[in-house]
């Protein structure tokens, strides 16, 4: 799925475009070490964590897009960092569970 398709599946808004890339796998979680231990490379990451370290972790772990759930608006440092690093950032009003269901229905791998 492209970033725009992900946003559409989640009634979300792409806050930062990121690089044009195909994302088929996803990971959900908030503890940064768990994400780095488990998230597959090139995935989209569903979280409610909202600080600049989220972008840092995405860079280091090769995560392509951050999906910030529950209507949380990214702090400026986070969106700026995503922009600099070419990481996509989507905001969605859905919670992590509903967003996961939405992505699954739209063709994401379980």
């Amino acid at each position: 799925m492209k970033l725009k398709e992900i946003a559409a599946a989640l009634a979300g808004t792409p806050a930062v475009e990121g690089q044009e890339a195909e994302i088929t796998r996803f990971y959900a979680g908030d503890f940064l070490s768990r994400v780095m231990g488990r998230a597959p490379e090139g995935c989209g990451w569903l979280t409610v964590m909202n600080n600049v370290n989220v972008a840092g972790v995405a860079v280091l772990a090769g995560i392509r897009a951050i999906i910030l759930c529950e209507g949380i608006q990214p702090v400026r440092e986070l969106s700026e960092r995503c922009r600099q690093e070419g990481i996509g950032l989507i905001t969605t009003p859905l919670d992590v569970y509903a967003a996961s269901v939405g992505l699954y229905r739209a063709g994401g791998e379980a």
Partner: peptide
């Protein structure tokens, strides 16, 4: 609260 402290750092 910042997302650190999962106790998975050394295992990773």
């Amino acid at each position: 609260e910042l997302g650190f402290g999962a106790g998975m750092g050394l295992p990773n």
